[in-house]
Protein backbone atom coordinates (compact mmCIF):
# COMPACT_ATOMS: atom_id res chain seq x y z
CA UNK A 1 0.00 0.00 0.00
CA UNK A 2 1.35 3.41 -0.86
CA UNK A 3 1.88 5.93 1.84
CA UNK A 4 -1.37 7.86 2.38
CA UNK A 5 -1.37 11.21 0.64
CA UNK A 6 1.55 10.43 -1.65
CA UNK A 7 0.82 11.86 -5.09
CA UNK A 8 4.12 11.19 -6.82
CA UNK A 9 6.89 8.80 -5.91
CA UNK A 10 10.17 8.23 -7.71
CA UNK A 11 11.87 5.01 -6.65
CA UNK A 12 15.49 4.19 -7.49
CA UNK A 13 15.18 6.07 -10.76
CA UNK A 14 17.98 5.75 -13.32
CA UNK A 15 18.12 7.50 -16.68
CA UNK A 16 20.78 8.53 -19.14
CA UNK A 17 21.40 10.47 -22.34
CA UNK A 18 23.44 8.07 -24.44
CA UNK A 19 26.47 7.26 -22.29
CA UNK A 20 25.94 10.12 -19.87
CA UNK A 21 24.14 8.98 -16.74
CA UNK A 22 21.85 11.76 -15.63
CA UNK A 23 19.95 10.03 -12.83
CA UNK A 24 21.63 7.42 -10.62
CA UNK A 25 19.08 6.00 -8.24
CA UNK A 26 16.82 8.86 -7.35
CA UNK A 27 14.21 8.61 -4.60
CA UNK A 28 11.72 11.41 -4.15
CA UNK A 29 8.18 11.81 -2.85
CA UNK A 30 5.62 14.57 -3.35
CA UNK A 31 2.48 14.50 -1.19
CA UNK A 32 -0.90 15.93 -2.13
CA UNK A 33 -1.01 19.68 -1.69
CA UNK A 34 2.71 20.12 -1.11
CA UNK A 35 5.09 22.57 -2.69
CA UNK A 36 8.35 20.67 -3.01
CA UNK A 37 11.50 22.12 -4.47
CA UNK A 38 14.50 20.43 -5.91
CA UNK A 39 17.76 22.35 -5.73
CA UNK A 40 21.26 21.54 -6.86
CA UNK A 41 24.11 22.73 -9.06
CA UNK A 42 24.00 22.84 -12.85
CA UNK A 43 24.15 19.34 -14.25
CA UNK A 44 23.05 17.67 -11.02
CA UNK A 45 20.08 16.15 -12.86
CA UNK A 46 17.22 18.41 -11.78
CA UNK A 47 15.84 19.01 -15.26
CA UNK A 48 16.37 15.34 -16.13
CA UNK A 49 14.25 14.42 -13.13
CA UNK A 50 11.36 16.53 -14.40
CA UNK A 51 11.84 15.22 -17.95
CA UNK A 52 11.70 11.66 -16.68
CA UNK A 53 8.47 12.38 -14.79
CA UNK A 54 6.74 13.90 -17.81
CA UNK A 55 7.88 11.14 -20.14
CA UNK A 56 10.41 13.05 -22.25
CA UNK A 57 13.30 11.04 -20.84
CA UNK A 58 12.87 7.29 -20.56
CA UNK A 59 13.81 5.74 -17.24
CA UNK A 60 16.36 2.95 -17.62
CA UNK A 61 15.61 1.52 -14.19
CA UNK A 62 13.34 2.29 -11.28
CA UNK A 63 9.75 3.34 -10.97
CA UNK A 64 7.66 6.48 -11.17
CA UNK A 65 4.28 6.16 -9.48
CA UNK A 66 1.63 8.84 -9.80
CA UNK A 67 -1.52 8.55 -7.74
CA UNK A 68 -0.89 4.86 -7.20
CA UNK A 69 -0.31 3.95 -10.84
CA UNK A 70 3.09 3.46 -12.51
CA UNK A 71 3.71 6.04 -15.26
CA UNK A 72 7.34 5.37 -16.25
CA UNK A 73 7.37 4.31 -19.87
CA UNK A 74 4.09 6.07 -20.64
CA UNK A 75 3.93 8.65 -23.44
CA UNK A 76 3.94 12.35 -22.48
CA UNK A 77 0.29 12.64 -23.58
CA UNK A 78 -0.80 9.86 -21.22
CA UNK A 79 1.12 11.38 -18.32
CA UNK A 80 -0.44 14.76 -19.01
CA UNK A 81 -3.87 13.15 -19.10
CA UNK A 82 -3.15 11.46 -15.79
CA UNK A 83 -2.74 14.96 -14.34
CA UNK A 84 0.89 16.10 -14.53
CA UNK A 85 1.72 19.30 -16.40
CA UNK A 86 5.29 20.39 -17.07
CA UNK A 87 6.21 24.05 -17.42
CA UNK A 88 9.59 23.69 -19.13
CA UNK A 89 12.82 25.57 -18.59
CA UNK A 90 13.20 28.67 -20.72
CA UNK A 91 9.42 29.07 -21.01
CA UNK A 92 9.28 27.48 -24.46
CA UNK A 93 6.15 29.28 -25.64
CA UNK A 94 5.33 28.70 -29.32
CA UNK A 95 6.72 31.92 -30.79
CA UNK A 96 4.63 32.05 -33.97
CA UNK A 97 1.38 31.04 -32.33
CA UNK A 98 -0.80 33.71 -30.79
CA UNK A 99 -1.16 33.96 -27.02
CA UNK A 100 -4.61 32.43 -27.26
CA UNK A 101 -3.36 29.59 -29.47
CA UNK A 102 -0.59 28.87 -26.98
CA UNK A 103 -3.20 28.57 -24.25
CA UNK A 104 -5.32 26.31 -26.45
CA UNK A 105 -2.27 24.09 -26.97
CA UNK A 106 -2.13 23.72 -23.19
CA UNK A 107 -5.62 22.21 -23.34
CA UNK A 108 -4.75 19.93 -26.28
CA UNK A 109 -5.56 16.67 -24.49
CA UNK A 110 -8.88 17.90 -23.11
CA UNK A 111 -12.15 16.95 -24.74
CA UNK A 112 -14.51 19.17 -22.71
CA UNK A 113 -14.56 22.10 -25.11
CA UNK A 114 -17.02 24.24 -23.21
CA UNK A 115 -15.06 24.04 -20.00
CA UNK A 116 -11.86 24.82 -21.91
CA UNK A 117 -13.58 28.02 -23.06
CA UNK A 118 -14.40 28.81 -19.43
CA UNK A 119 -10.80 28.22 -18.44
CA UNK A 120 -9.60 30.49 -21.24
CA UNK A 121 -11.86 33.16 -19.77
CA UNK A 122 -10.55 32.48 -16.28
CA UNK A 123 -6.97 32.97 -17.43
CA UNK A 124 -7.83 36.57 -18.10
CA UNK A 125 -8.72 37.21 -14.47
CA UNK A 126 -5.44 35.78 -13.23
CA UNK A 127 -3.25 37.07 -16.05
CA UNK A 128 -4.85 40.26 -17.37
CA UNK A 129 -1.81 41.07 -19.50
CA UNK A 130 -2.37 37.89 -21.51
CA UNK A 131 -5.91 38.95 -22.35
CA UNK A 132 -4.68 42.28 -23.68
CA UNK A 133 -2.23 40.46 -25.89
CA UNK A 134 -4.22 37.39 -26.86
CA UNK A 135 -4.04 38.10 -30.59
CA UNK A 136 -0.31 38.80 -30.56
CA UNK A 137 2.17 36.08 -31.39
CA UNK A 138 3.93 34.82 -28.27
CA UNK A 139 7.34 35.66 -29.69
CA UNK A 140 6.52 39.36 -29.42
CA UNK A 141 5.91 39.20 -25.65
CA UNK A 142 8.48 40.28 -23.06
CA UNK A 143 10.28 37.63 -21.00
CA UNK A 144 8.00 38.15 -18.02
CA UNK A 145 4.88 37.94 -20.17
CA UNK A 146 6.19 34.77 -21.79
CA UNK A 147 6.69 33.27 -18.33
CA UNK A 148 3.08 34.15 -17.41
CA UNK A 149 1.96 32.54 -20.66
CA UNK A 150 3.99 29.40 -20.01
CA UNK A 151 2.47 29.07 -16.55
CA UNK A 152 -1.06 29.76 -17.78
CA UNK A 153 -0.56 27.26 -20.60
CA UNK A 154 0.52 24.56 -18.15
CA UNK A 155 -2.58 25.26 -16.05
CA UNK A 156 -4.86 24.81 -19.08
CA UNK A 157 -4.64 21.02 -18.76
CA UNK A 158 -6.11 21.31 -15.23
CA UNK A 159 -3.23 19.40 -13.67
CA UNK A 160 -3.19 17.94 -10.19
CA UNK A 161 0.60 18.19 -10.15
CA UNK A 162 2.55 20.85 -11.95
CA UNK A 163 6.30 20.71 -12.58
CA UNK A 164 8.14 24.02 -12.82
CA UNK A 165 11.63 24.07 -14.26
CA UNK A 166 13.61 27.18 -13.34
CA UNK A 167 10.67 29.58 -13.37
CA UNK A 168 12.86 32.52 -12.34
CA UNK A 169 15.50 32.00 -15.02
CA UNK A 170 16.30 35.18 -16.93
CA UNK A 171 13.65 37.30 -15.24
CA UNK A 172 14.18 40.71 -13.63
CA UNK A 173 14.05 40.62 -9.81
CA UNK A 174 10.61 42.22 -9.60
CA UNK A 175 9.26 39.61 -12.03
CA UNK A 176 10.86 36.81 -10.05
CA UNK A 177 8.79 37.93 -7.05
CA UNK A 178 5.64 38.03 -9.18
CA UNK A 179 6.33 34.60 -10.62
CA UNK A 180 6.90 33.01 -7.23
CA UNK A 181 3.76 34.75 -5.98
CA UNK A 182 1.79 33.12 -8.78
CA UNK A 183 3.26 29.71 -8.02
CA UNK A 184 2.38 30.08 -4.33
CA UNK A 185 -1.10 31.04 -5.41
CA UNK A 186 -1.46 27.99 -7.64
CA UNK A 187 -0.54 25.79 -4.68
CA UNK A 188 -2.97 27.63 -2.42
CA UNK A 189 -5.75 26.84 -4.86
CA UNK A 190 -5.03 23.15 -4.49
CA UNK A 191 -2.53 22.15 -7.15
CA UNK A 192 0.52 20.26 -5.96
CA UNK A 193 3.84 21.72 -7.11
CA UNK A 194 7.27 20.24 -7.75
CA UNK A 195 9.73 22.96 -8.63
CA UNK A 196 13.32 22.96 -9.81
CA UNK A 197 15.02 26.23 -9.01
CA UNK A 198 18.50 27.70 -9.07
CA UNK A 199 17.56 30.56 -6.81
CA UNK A 200 17.79 28.28 -3.79
CA UNK A 201 17.11 30.98 -1.24
CA UNK A 202 13.78 32.03 -2.75
CA UNK A 203 12.79 28.46 -3.44
CA UNK A 204 13.52 27.25 0.08
CA UNK A 205 11.66 30.19 1.57
CA UNK A 206 8.42 29.30 -0.19
CA UNK A 207 8.58 25.49 -0.29
CA UNK A 208 7.28 23.03 2.30
CA UNK A 209 9.98 20.50 1.71
CA UNK A 210 13.10 20.36 -0.37
CA UNK A 211 15.51 17.89 -1.90
CA UNK A 212 19.13 18.65 -2.66
CA UNK A 213 20.51 16.88 -5.69
CA UNK A 214 24.12 16.13 -6.59
CA UNK A 215 25.34 14.05 -9.57
CA UNK A 216 22.08 12.29 -10.24
CA UNK A 217 20.92 11.44 -6.73
CA UNK A 218 19.41 13.02 -3.66
CA UNK A 219 22.00 13.91 -1.02
CA UNK A 220 19.82 15.77 1.41
CA UNK A 221 16.13 16.24 2.09
CA UNK A 222 13.95 17.82 4.71
CA UNK A 223 11.61 20.66 5.57
CA UNK A 224 12.61 23.69 3.48
CA UNK A 225 13.08 25.89 6.59
CA UNK A 226 15.48 23.39 8.08
CA UNK A 227 17.53 23.25 4.89
CA UNK A 228 17.80 27.03 4.93
CA UNK A 229 19.78 26.62 8.16
CA UNK A 230 21.77 23.59 7.08
CA UNK A 231 25.50 24.27 6.91
CA UNK A 232 26.11 22.28 3.74
CA UNK A 233 23.21 23.92 1.95
CA UNK A 234 24.23 27.37 3.13
CA UNK A 235 27.80 26.90 1.94
CA UNK A 236 27.04 25.21 -1.37
CA UNK A 237 23.82 26.86 -2.54
CA UNK A 238 23.14 30.00 -0.57
CA UNK A 239 26.60 31.51 -0.78
CA UNK A 240 26.81 31.96 2.96
Amino acid sequence: MPDAGVLLALEDLHASYGHVQALRGLDLVVRVGELVCLIGANGAGKTSTLRAISGLLRAARGRIVFDGAPIHGAAPAAILRAGIAHCPEGRRVFPYLTVRENLEMGAYVRRDRREVEDDLERVSTHFPVLTERRRQTAGTLSGGEQQMLAIARALMSRPRLILFDEPSLGLAPALVETTFGIIADIRRRGTTVLMVEQNAYLALRMADRAYVMETGRIVLEGPARALLDDDHVRRAYLGA
Binding site: S54, L56, A75, P76, A77, L80, R81, H86, P88, R92, F94, P95, Y96, L97, E101, E104, M105, G106, Y108, V109, R153, S157
Partner: peptide, 23 residues
Protein backbone atom coordinates in the same frame (compact mmCIF):
# COMPACT_ATOMS: atom_id res chain seq x y z
CA UNK B 1 -8.49 23.72 -36.57
CA UNK B 2 -6.96 21.89 -33.66
CA UNK B 3 -4.99 19.73 -36.09
CA UNK B 4 -3.61 22.80 -37.86
CA UNK B 5 -2.62 24.40 -34.59
CA UNK B 6 -0.86 21.21 -33.50
CA UNK B 7 0.99 21.12 -36.86
CA UNK B 8 2.24 24.65 -36.44
CA UNK B 9 3.20 24.05 -32.82
CA UNK B 10 4.99 20.79 -33.63
CA UNK B 11 7.24 22.33 -36.24
CA UNK B 12 8.06 25.28 -34.00
CA UNK B 13 8.98 23.17 -30.98
CA UNK B 14 8.42 19.43 -31.16
CA UNK B 15 9.42 18.68 -27.60
CA UNK B 16 7.13 21.26 -26.05
CA UNK B 17 4.33 20.05 -28.32
CA UNK B 18 4.89 16.55 -26.98
CA UNK B 19 4.60 18.01 -23.47
CA UNK B 20 1.21 19.41 -24.49
CA UNK B 21 0.19 15.87 -25.43
CA UNK B 22 0.50 16.22 -29.21
CA UNK B 23 1.21 12.87 -30.94
Amino acid sequence: TKLGRAMRATFQDAETSALMGVP
